[in-house]
């Protein structure tokens, strides 16, 4: 089954308020797409459009070659899992209950999740190293733990594609690395079939770490896309984020992005022009 997710000439936003336009994207199982761009550039709106949660304002989104607008919610949910930014639910569900909700699209309309669904949910929690939180009150978990539970829910959904809205935003340093490794593993087929993952992040280093295809956005448009080494230059990052950024290679060979903090003495400045080695 072709489960490619594609956007063609997509315009995003709301009736009377267009946020972005001219967006072309393609996500296939095994690929990682990393969206970078400043706050308010339309990343979340793009995700909501890709998931069919809001209608496209122009162009179209295709899922497996068919218009997304014609698909039923359950069909979409069997193809694309969504990891929203962590939030507080109104009721004190157990973490396991939240993960079990990921099974909904796999259940017949009038069914409850059964023993097999529970197993899948628990395996998803274990996989992220939070199996011991299964019975914990989700509403009392830390933001980072909640984020991991939501990722576990997406895993339990068993989809070929996954959309993650800033999956590392509220995680501590260790959990960020853990989640990134998990994302790389998912795309590499560590869990069986390789997954296609599109994620947004505020940390360009993550794109280097993941070796992901980068989509650099500003004001609702795609400025550049491609390999991170090609797209994430100091110049491009400086333009997009409005602060001087340099990209440097560590002794280990990884590229890292360093924003300049305030003014520096002349001569020692890490100006994007001279430090751009990508």
């Amino acid at each position: 089954m072709d489960v490619r997710l594609a956007a063609q000439g997509l315009a995003i936003g709301y009736p009377g308020r267009r946020i972005g336009a001219g967006i072309d994207l393609e996500l296939a199982p095994g690929g990682i797409l990393c969206l970078l761009g400043p706050n308010g550039c339309g990343k979340t709106t793009l995700f909501r459009t890709l998931l069919g949660l809001i209608p496209a304002q122009g162009g179209e989104v295709l899922l497996g070659g068919r218009p997304l607008a014609a698909a039923r919610r359950a069909e979409i949910a069997r193809a694309i899992a969504y990891v929203p930014q962590a939030h507080a639910p109104p009721f004190p569900y157990r973490a396991l209950d939240i993960v079990l909700m990921g099974r909904t699209a796999r259940l017949p309309a009038l069914s409850q999740p059964g023993a097999r669904d529970r197993e899948i949910a628990l395996r998803a929690l274990d996989r992220l190293g939070i199996g011991d939180l299964a019975q914990a009150d989700y509403s009392r978990l830390s933001g980072g733990q909640r984020q991991l539970v939501l990722i576990a829910r997406a895993l339990a959904q068993e989809t070929p594609l996954m959309v993650m809205d800033e999956p590392t935003a509220s995680l501590d340093f260790g959990n960020q690395a853990r989640v990134l490794a998990e994302i790389a593993g998912l795309a590499g087929g560590a869990g069986g079939e390789p997954l296609g993952v599109v994620l947004s992040t505020h940390d360009p280093d993550q794109a280097f770490a993941l070796g992901a295809e980068v989509v650099l956005m500003k004001e609702g448009r795609i400025l550049a896309r491609g390999r991170p080494e090609a797209v994430l230059t100091g110049e491009a990052l400086s333009t997009v984020y409005g602060v001087p950024v340099s990209v440097e290679r560590t002794e280990g060979g990884r590229l890292v992005c360093l924003p300049a903090l305030g003014r520096r003495p002349p001569g020692q400045a890490a100006s994007p022009e001279v430090m751009d080695i990508a």
């Binding site: 639910p89 909904t104 259940l107 409850q112």
Partner: peptide
Amino acid sequence: VALRWRINVLSLGDEEARALGVEA
């Protein structure tokens, strides 16, 4: 009673419920 599981999912909010496959 029949839709009790889906009603649970609806309590996560429309957007998440829809992303999980419920016609909210």
